[in-house]
């Protein structure tokens, strides 16, 4: 189902299928190519990601899934020698446009990383940092409300309400990751990118994060990169399989995991990679 020649302009599988047709398209990519210091990392990726759902990117290491994720909030800008071409629109707005300030973009596109990375500050300050630098709260009360709301959305409020001024780094790994999600939510993003958010967590913490992701789906467009096929199957509605910088297959999660059409996807998810 994937065209063998990446420069071919026809992309048969840009949308995940008829089942998601009623959801509006949030992220639209057309022929996105990324190279690091001349080395091609992503070849002509075109994809439509619907809003209010979870889309999982799977694929072997170095397949370009994280690279693509980093295009969405222009984190590639921070990497020396990274070059992004092609059209990438969020809500119809070109992300790579000169007029788009990456700072504004990143407030709109939150990101959660592989290793929980809370700031070495208090739990409160961790969540309040984003609203503070963006000037989202006019008073202390407003800020308190944002912090409480974000922590509640991240399912962490009950666990930390009585120790908001304790250091965020003192929490357990799973709590830290939820704190980081709360920090991302606090600036009111529309898209949340997650780069292997559970790879450093135990199964119970992972389950909590997955539950959280499922709840957040109601309000956000979530894109998650994961190495765990089971996780992709559990949390996502759409799954995209990347291989060697190409988007090989994109479809509903059910279809990808029961009847992948491309033999590469087939081999990858059944553990036959060659």
């Amino acid at each position: 189902m994937v065209n063998p020649m990446p420069d071919n302009q026809s992309h048969p599988d840009m949308s995940a299928g008829a089942g998601q047709a009623e959801l509006p398209i949030k992220v639209q990519a057309r022929d996105v190519c990324v190279s690091y210091s001349g080395k091609q990392a992503l070849n002509h990726v075109s994809i439509d990601v619907p809003d209010r759902s979870v889309t999982a990117f799977i694929g072997p290491s170095g397949c370009g899934k994280s690279t693509f994720l980093r295009c969405l909030n222009r984190m590639n800008d921070t990497i020396e020698g990274a070059k992004v071409v092609g059209s990438l629109k969020i809500d119809g707005l070109e992300v790579n446009d000169k007029s788009v300030d990456p700072v504004v973009l990143r407030a709109n596109v939150g990101m959660v990383f592989q290793k929980p990375n809370p700031f070495p500050k208090s739990i409160y300050d961790n969540v309040a940092y984003g609203p503070r630098i963006h000037g989202l709260a006019l008073s202390k009360d407003e800020l308190d409300a944002i912090v409480e709301d974000s922590l509640k959305k991240a399912g962490l409020w009950d666990e930390v309400a009585d120790r908001l001024n304790h250091p965020g780094t003192g929490l357990s790994g799973g709590q830290q990751q939820r704190l980081v999600i709360a920090r991302a939510i606090a600036v009111n993003p529309e898209v949340i990118l997650m780069d292997e958010p559970c790879s450093a967590l135990d199964p119970i913490a992972t389950a909590k994060i997955e539950e959280l992701i499922d709840e957040l789906r109601e309000n956000y467009c979530i894109i998650i990169v994961t190495h765990s096929m089971q996780q992709a199957a559990r949390v996502s509605q759409q799954t995209a399989f990347f291989h060697m910088g190409n988007l090989v297959e994109y479809g509903t999660t059910e279809e990808i995991f029961t009847n992948p059409r491309d033999p590469r996807t087939q081999d990858y998810i059944t553990g036959r990679f060659g």
């Binding site: 029961t258 009847n259 998810i269």
Partner: peptide
Amino acid sequence: RQPLATDLR
């Protein structure tokens, strides 16, 4: 083994 795709079917 949690079989998937062809293995699952």
